[in-house]
Amino acid sequence: MTDARLLTRALADPPSTASFGPADWTPLIAMARAEQLLGSLAHRLDGLAQSDKVAELLAAARASADHARRTALWEAEMARRALADIDARVILLKGTAYVAAGLSAGIGRSIGDLDILVPRASLDAVERALIGRGGWEWVKEDDYDDAYYRRWMHELPPLIHKERDRMIDVHHTILPPTARPTPDADALIADSEALDPSEPRGLRVLSPPDMICHAACHMLADGDLAGGLRNLWDIDRLLRDFGEREGFWDDLAARAERHQLTKPVARALRLAEALYGTPVDGDVAGRGRAGDALYIRRLLARDGWGRETRKGLRQAFYIRSHWLRMPPAMLARHLWTKWRKG
């Protein structure tokens, strides 16, 4: 039975696709689309000899990623303008941060929502500015969901722009307060870097070690691994960008510890090494654990038709994601309320 190894190999080792025939390309493209990685793959394979059809498909995917990039940067600029009067640092997260900072992880990346991080103390002012001046509005008008977000989540309820139809997620930290690790949000913000050093009041991104911590935490401590191959690809690209810098791995180990994310970061490194051949520091990655194999099976659970496979394993990771996010009694109450509301 095929799994997404086909895709991870093509990403990690583009020349290996030289031997691909039509029977490989159709499944590869379907998998890459399903994992939101076709733009990244298309850039990786750019310049290699391909049949006309493959070259056409990949060129269209690159054009599509260019559009995603431009749209994401415009959205970030719109948020910057709406928040310019607020005396708080505004930090771009995830895809938008990668393209804005010119990092390899941004090349060909698909980008959906705009994610920003702001100090918790500024949350109300940010919300007012986005709605009042920016033209964003609430997505859902559900009292329970709204209250849940505000009380228990690391972000505001999602806002959508009235005219541009794009979502913004405003975070005040990178994990729900109900989760067991408590990342140091103040440190994330304090050590963030201005995109343009001559414009210290402009948009910012996380420091390199914090970017890895956030990516690992997003992938392993806060979800069911949906989109995991893409998140792991981000981590691979970031580590290749930063790994050669003086002192990076020591900084990463120290930051991971400070954010109580040593385990997820170590595991993310091992998974990236296993699936994408990422060069990692053995001390930070730690020794392989028995569970790693399950994560790999879950990450690769995709067939050549782009379908999700290994349903039981997927379900187990889904349940785990809720388990990680909240204590059992709270989870029971939450699921009960959600179930009653249908």
Binding site: P22, T26, I29, S51, K53, L57, W305, R307
Partner: peptide, 12 residues
């Protein structure tokens, strides 16, 4: 019949 498909459709 195309050797390489632009798009995949699934009826499931």
């Amino acid at each position: 019949e195309p050797a390489i498909a632009d798009f995949t459709v699934r009826l499931e």
